[in-house]
């Protein structure tokens, strides 16, 4: 079970890594924002899985903080840096 949870955590992390490709690739700012959001929820998922696998209940607190802060950062993204460039691939 523990090993399974570690593997699942690694899988989520791997999918986050895939998502990062979008950040680097673009083409719009919205894409990069989305990827950041993915990292937020991916990070939460990893933290929860680790909390179980490492037997540390208080990691749920860290996950809670990540959820709240990620929400704030997402809003900061949109409010401060709404997609300034043209969409649909025109950069």
């Amino acid at each position: 079970m523990t090993e399974f949870m570690f593997l699942m955590a690694a899988a989520v992390l791997g999918s986050v890594a895939l998502g990062l490709w979008r950040v680097v690739r673009g083409p719009t700012r919205a894409d990069a924002m989305m990827a950041a959001q993915l990292v937020g929820s991916g990070g939460v998922a990893v933290l929860l899985l680790l909390s179980h696998a490492m037997g540390r209940a208080h990691l749920v607190d860290v996950a809670l903080v990540v959820v709240l802060l990620a929400a704030m950062v997402s809003v900061a993204f949109v409010r401060r840096l709404g997609p300034v460039r043209g969409d649909d691939g025109t950069e």
Binding site: V16, V24, A32, A35, V39, L47, R56, V62, A70
Partner: peptide, 28 residues
């Protein structure tokens, strides 16, 4: 802009690394 996004991503992942290093206070 992209660098900023990656910086934020880096922060979240670094926090995971602190968890793995058994330093949950720092992770928080």
């Amino acid at each position: 802009f992209k660098a900023t996004v990656l910086f934020i991503v880096f922060g979240v992942l670094l926090s995971l690394a602190w968890v793995r290093l058994n330093a949950p206070d720092v992770a928080l």
